[in-house]
Structure formats: structure tokens, C-alpha cells
Design a protein around this nucleic acid. Structure first.
Length: 275
DNA sequence: CGTTACCCCTGGAGGC
DNA sequence: TGCCTCCAGGGGTAAC
């Protein structure tokens, strides 16, 4: 479920509750997520303080420098992960795999499909962690614009849609926002990367930026003590133009929205106005 | 090297 | 009601 906006909304929602708080314990009920959760987390994290929370792509990075022997907790929500803040001693339900215990609250990771991950990086330089080292540009950074996208796609023959979802190129754009951004920019998901003009790369880059930004704004307003990544934010609040709307009329041109398969994923688009 | 296929896992929807 | 198939917001790896 979570793409960049959902992770960013989670970050913003958690920050005021966890910043400056000390970890008093860790409970791992299910170590077998995408990557095995490292053993001995409880001993390693207890006593550390949360100094801040960053985001890199779809990874949430919890800064636990203070307290000696510090590092970073990396959380990825996969397809079905979500984070909640619950009162201490709240009984765990099915698929509640990890609790990070604080004095006044519990950060609880739930992930039915277990495609998510919880990793620990010793030391300050989290960007050198193997999971982050090869990630591409942040789509909300100043450096991400039409010129960047144009240069980055010149040698790429693959269709633009799977390229947008390639985190080694650009991070955070998942299946929903790839489809919605391409529709907003009126670029066909089938068009080869190197066959998009500089001007249309500009349109696409700003479409990506505005789609993500609008989704963050829509999700951010609803976050309090419940941080949800399971459809609360993003498309389900803003209503998608094409995603999940096969057969329905395109809101721009009234053409019929089509669904095709690209690199194993569903792609929704309007063949009439997306070229 | 770039690109695609397959796989990890559970649950919900829909057909029979 | 149950059983079956297909599908799902991600990404790591293997193979072409």
C-alpha cells in the first residue's frame, strides 16, 4: 500500500510523539519479514533516544544516535505494512510483528503480507546502508526536474512507467502514483523513456511532484495518534483519475480507461489523451 | 548493462 | 457455506 506519500505522512505523524522519547524495550513477535529482523534488538535499542525521523524513498529512518552505541532503525512497509501508536499494554493482534516501547506509547508494526522490513544500521551514516546505498533521486528534491528526467532517460528503451517505478532511478513512485502522474502529464505509460521530449519530461516531472505533494497534504491532515498507511492517505482520499478505473470514462477526455500489464504490474491509462 | 520474470506472503473478491 | 482462482500499493534476485 504505502508509496512515498503514505510513508511521509507516517513520518510527520510519528515525529511529534516520538521525538526526544527514549526506547524502553523492543518486542519482536515475528522476525521473519522480508529480511530477518536482527536478533538482540531489545538489548541494543533499549536506552536509546529518538532524535528525529527521516525518510528516504519508501524507507522510514528513525535516528537513534543518542545514548551511546547509537544508529538508525530502518522501516519499510512493503505492500501491506502500517504503523500505529497505541497505549502501553494494548494486546497485539494478528500480524502485529514488532513493538517499539516508549514510556507513554507503543509504536506497533503490522504487516499481514510480511513484505516489509525492519533493519538496524550501526553508526551515523545511514545512507551507506546496503538497502539505501543504490537508491535514486528523491522526486521532491530540488534536483528532480524536467532536465534531470530528460538526461536520465536518454539511454533507456524501457517503457516510462516501469522506469518511474525503478527505485535506482527515482524513489518513492509506486504503481498508483506512476499511473496518476503519467495521466496528469498525458504521457503514455508505454512510451519508451528515450522517446520523451525535453518539454514533456518537464511536464512529467512537475506532474510527479504535484501528485505526490497533493497526496501528502491530503493524508497529513488526518494523522493524530493513529498513523495509517493502509489506504487512508493518497489516492483513496484524492480519488484517482485512472488507477483502478478500467472501463470508466477518463475525467479529462471521456475516453475509456484501459488496463494493461507492464513488468508484472497493472497499468491503468487513457489511450486517448495519453501519448 | 538494461530489462523482464518470478518469487516472497496473506487476505479479500468473485466464480462455481 | 466452501473451495478455487486471481489479484493486491514492493522489491530482491535470477535469467535473458
Amino acid at each position: 500500500m504505502p508509496e512515498l506519500p503514505e510513508v511521509e505522512v507516517s513520518r510527520q505523524g510519528l515525529l511529534p510523539y516520538l521525538s526526544g522519547q527514549s526506547i524502553v524495550g523492543v518486542v519482536v513477535r515475528t522476525p521473519s519479514l522480508r529480511h530477518e529482523i536482527p536478533a538482540g534488538l531489545d538489548a541494543r535499542l533499549t536506552g536509546l533516544q529518538v532524535d528525529g525521523i527521516r525518510r528516504r524513498g519508501k524507507y522510514l529512518l528513525i535516528d537513534c544516535q543518542s545514548g551511546g552505541g547509537g544508529g538508525w532503525l530502518l522501516i519499510h512497509l512493503g505492500m501491506s505494512g502500517s504503523l500505529r501508536l497505541v497505549p502501553p499494554a494494548t494486546p497485539a493482534q494478528k500480524h502485529d510483528h514488532v513493538d517499539l516501547l516508549f514510556a507513554a506509547t507503543v509504536l506497533r508494526l503490522r504487516d499481514p503480507r510480511r513484505f516489509g522490513a525492519l533493519l538496524w544500521h550501526e553508526g551515523p551514516d545511514v545512507d551507506r546502508h546496503p538497502a539505501l546505498a543504490h537508491l535514486g533521486i528523491e522526486p521532491l528534491s530540488d534536483a528532480f526536474d524536467g532536465n534531470w528526467l530528460y538526461a536520465a532517460t536518454r539511454q533507456r528503451h524501457a517503457p516510462i512507467k516501469p522506469l518511474l517505478m525503478d527505485s535506482r532511478l527515482v524513489v518513492g513512485i509506486g504503481n498508483i502514483y506512476a499511473a496518476e502522474s503519467l495521466h496528469l502529464a498525458r504521457v503514455s505509460p508505454l512510451r519508451a523513456g528515450n522517446r520523451i521530449s525535453r518539454q514533456r519530461c518537464g511536464l512529467l516531472a512537475s506532474a510527479i511532484r504535484s501528485t505526490l505533494t497533493a497526496s501528502i497534504a491530503a493524508g497529513g491532515s488526518s494523522v493524530r495518534d493513529y498513523v495509517h498507511s493502509d489506504g487512508g492517505a493518497g489516492c483513496f482520499q484524492l480519488a484517482c483519475a485512472v488507477y483502478g478505473r478500467a472501463g470508466e470514462p477518463c475525467p479529462v477526455c471521456a475516453g475509456k480507461v484501459r488496463v494493461i500489464r507492464q513488468a508484472g504490474r497493472s497499468t491503468f491509462y487513457c489511450p486517448r489523451c495519453q501519448r
